[in-house]
Design a protein around this nucleic acid. Sequence first.
DNA 1: TATATTGTTACACC
DNA 2: TGGTGTAACAATAT
Length: 308
Amino acid sequence: MPELPEVETVVRELNKKLKNRIIASVQVNAPKMIAVGPDVVSNRREVSSSQVLKFIKLLQGQKVLSVKRRAKLIIFEFSRELFLLVHLKMTGQFIFEDQKQHLKTLGKYRLLNKIFAPLTQLPSKHTHVVFKLRDKSCLYFNDVRKFGYLKLVSQSELAHVREFKDYGPEPLAKAFTLQKFKTQIQKRKTGKIKQVLMDNAVVVGIGNIYSDEILFHAKVRPMRTPASLSEKEKKYIFKYILEVLKKAIKAKGSSVGDFIRTDGNWGSMGKHHFVYGRRGQKCKKCGTMIESIKLGGRTGSFCPKCQK
DNA sequence: TATATTGTTACACC
DNA sequence: TGGTGTAACAATAT
């Protein structure tokens, strides 16, 4: 499940690998997953073949200037004032293959990706868009659930992209201070703290995995309300937002579900999870059984002894 | 075959 | 009206 650290991992790798490379051709296998223009990508829309053609045509010959991130959105910046915004949602993956690494990477990928048996070769039945680069390297976009999207916008349209308007502060930006965090959570006094942390208007990039982990380290149960938090607890939550996310980026993300990096390797953060996905197992700190509850239809896991 | 899965948006409700 | 909570949705493995 790509959250901020996973998306950041993908972005850093793509930026390094794709910078200055030029797109030779684009193949779109699932038209539903692409869009042209700044509008919200709705789930049940039809995409015409002329839109697909436009998408392909606009990308051909473009040089990658940089790959960046805002919240969980990947932003490719191309020459000629063109931007590609990609959301991985639950199961999106980017896999990059250098031509000479092709066979080697494929072997590794086959070995590592045992969670989803169909993804044993590239392209697979879950490969929905393929970018072929002029130097014969190749970028695959895979998505088992097809919840993700790739949206192409011009420079002038970029300011009107809906996603950006709803995004709150970046947790790892210098501008995100304890004071700012406190102001943000004041806005949502009645919700549960776990849901508040996952609200993009409060702070972006935190999903189910990292909200669980942050609250464990802060010793706060997920169902607590912001109004009930002491100053010390707020301080700890803020502190661990930064620490947990930074640690996860260092570990190249958590390979939960089917997140893998652009070279097919797993991120190693999963080894350091204290509560997420550990219901019924012993707490790594005190040995108590980890419990889970449903909050707004989402599962939250916590240690009943370590978290108050 | 029903279920669980998650990020995000749409919408109903005070 | 604005803030909040919840349902709905995408598609598939198990």
